[in-house]
Design a protein around this nucleic acid. Sequence first.
DNA 1: GTTCTCTAAGTTTTT
DNA 2: CTTAGAGAAC
Length: 721
Amino acid sequence: MNLSEITNGLNDKQHQSVALDNTQNALILAGAGSGKTRVLTHRIAYLVTQKNIHTDSILAVTFTNKAAAEMRERLGTLLRRSIQSMWVGTFHGLAHRLLRTHYEKAGLTSGFQILDAQDQYRIVKRLMKENNIDESKFPVRKVQWFINQQKDEGIRAQDVDPGYNFFVKKSLEVFVLYEAHCRANDLIDFAELLVRSYELLKNNAELLEHYQTRFSHILVDEFQDTNTVQYKWIQQLFTGNNQVFCVGDDDQSIYGWRGAKIENITKLETDFAPIQTIRLEQNYRSTGHILSASNALIANNTNRMGKSLWTDAGDGDLIDVYEARTETDEADYVVRKIQKLIKDGGRASDCAILYRSNAQSRVFEEVLIKYNVPYIIYGGLRFFERGEIKDALGYLRLIENTADNVAFERIVNFPTRGIGNATLEKIREFARNEHTNLFQAAQQVSPTLPTRASNALKGFIALIEQMVDDSKHLDLSEKVAHLLSASGLMNHYANDKTDKAGSKKENLEELISAAKQYKHEEDSEMNEVVGFISLASLDSSGDGNAPAVDNVQLMTIHSAKGLEFPNVFLGGLEEDLFPSRQSKDEPHLMDEERRLCYVGMTRAMKRLTLSFAVKRFLHGQSLYAYPSRFLDEIPSEYINKVKAKFGATQVNYQEDDIYNQDIEPQANGQLAVGAGVRHAKFGYGSVLNFEGDGDSARIQIKFKTAGTKWLIASYANLEFV
DNA sequence: GTTCTCTAAGTTTTT
DNA sequence: CTTAGAGAAC
């Protein structure tokens, strides 16, 4: 591969960044839509092909799994060679890898488990209860928050100065208990992954030196989102004999609430000196008005590093600002506009609806269903975070490692089998006194219990032992399938009357196929089951498969970062919602809200629509709201104001008459969007959406009486009418 | 010990 | 509007 292949189509600044001398540290201040990912991947390609840097010597860190996957893919096609051995991943993913490889030196056993936010919450809550700390005075969530905040700063419990703040004092008590509990049980929460791997290298000079020598080139994406520990992690690997290449944009820092420090970008210039700073300011994404409006908005922030984006793409359309009467009116306007775009030849997937908080998605969802517009929601409750999935994984974890106490607690009495709190408390006490795990404690305690409890517990122990035995020779997906039926989970959810749509059962079936699709890396530090379980904790999205059908995309602005769409609808621009109420009192929080708005607006390529509702139903009550201050900060010359005429949204719309809709039906044989179907239990309905074909197809159907559901073709037994 | 019903409290963003 | 928790009835 020659140089021109790599630098082809890059502008001057991009070219300069990519082809910097390989002994040079660099900070690339890359504005929204300035080709940041491109520069990063081409830089790696340049190093590998032009400077003969081995792929093993490259460490590339991103913030999200999505970004890491994208980078891997782009590099694969660009380099046309295996990048297997290259360390590309998220901070958390790479830290995890370090800990798995050197678990002993990190003070862990090979079976250590990752705690997700929910697991952590449960543990903090139980510790507080056991130690009589009043939850009403010290909310669990706040204490959990406090603990994570310290850890994001790299601060251990013993290093916290309680001062005279009573809340801090109490939280610190819990922090101490929590740390002891995690150490005793081999538990690693998200923040701990980073702190522990940082300490691992700090305390093992040879190990640190090994990685310092190995990684001659360290590349970091989204540098403005790094927190203190992440910064120290990078700094520690840097010796001056290797090079860093950091890409970031201070105007897009939106994770301050999670401990991210924008200042880290400025600190780079001293801590990694000499470092060359290059600004990428040409925007290739948005048209002129959108860009000017975004520039004007962000100019209201203080302490910017300074940067002004420009484009030669022309002015484009004005930004529509819609004044809705209510949140339903807002959604109605947005969805009908999307329908019109589709009718005029646009694609649904070219449209994105963005919002500040997840709760706002519901109204949009309802209206999209009403108008039969296919959609997909990102975020919200993620696949691997669903209760039924965590139950199943609990069994998988316990079978893999009976010492897994978190898993034990979760499933010992689920589905219910007569093991109550009284019994559990005895098991816990025994485990504490004898320094053993809960499963072993249960084995010891069971004969001493009253008959009923004893039998119940013995039954559970036998069940797990049997499952361990049975699944020895099964592969991963067979294991999952087996445990679902043997544990009684599948049966439980199949008979669950509260699960009206049967979606929990479907999710469990989905878990089997997720296990089937899981690709385990041969040279991994983990076995297949542990690898799968870790994936479930670290990559909560779970939806690896892209939507097969053309869908409108709904997500929070946070999850839209790094993405772009031809048509963006940004809703809920009201004071106290966006900017959020919690950010009002603190100028630096307000600045972050503004950056968030800036990120949202700069996702748009061709058309941007902003909207706000005069009256909004939120938190169970209707409130009148003022338009967001951000709207006032956009000069009126870029804006086209749209207002609801009274009655304008009263459409002559018939529930069942999907043929009156503005949607082009998509078809795959008999299976077609809009096709009428009959289901034995749910009755008549029409197809809204589908993925895949044949028996494995998943079909979304709006039933006349039973609501909207996703069904699997092979189970649903549909009759086309 | 389990299940049902009622009340109260909390609601930004995510690896 | 949701969800978690308490209390009562089985």
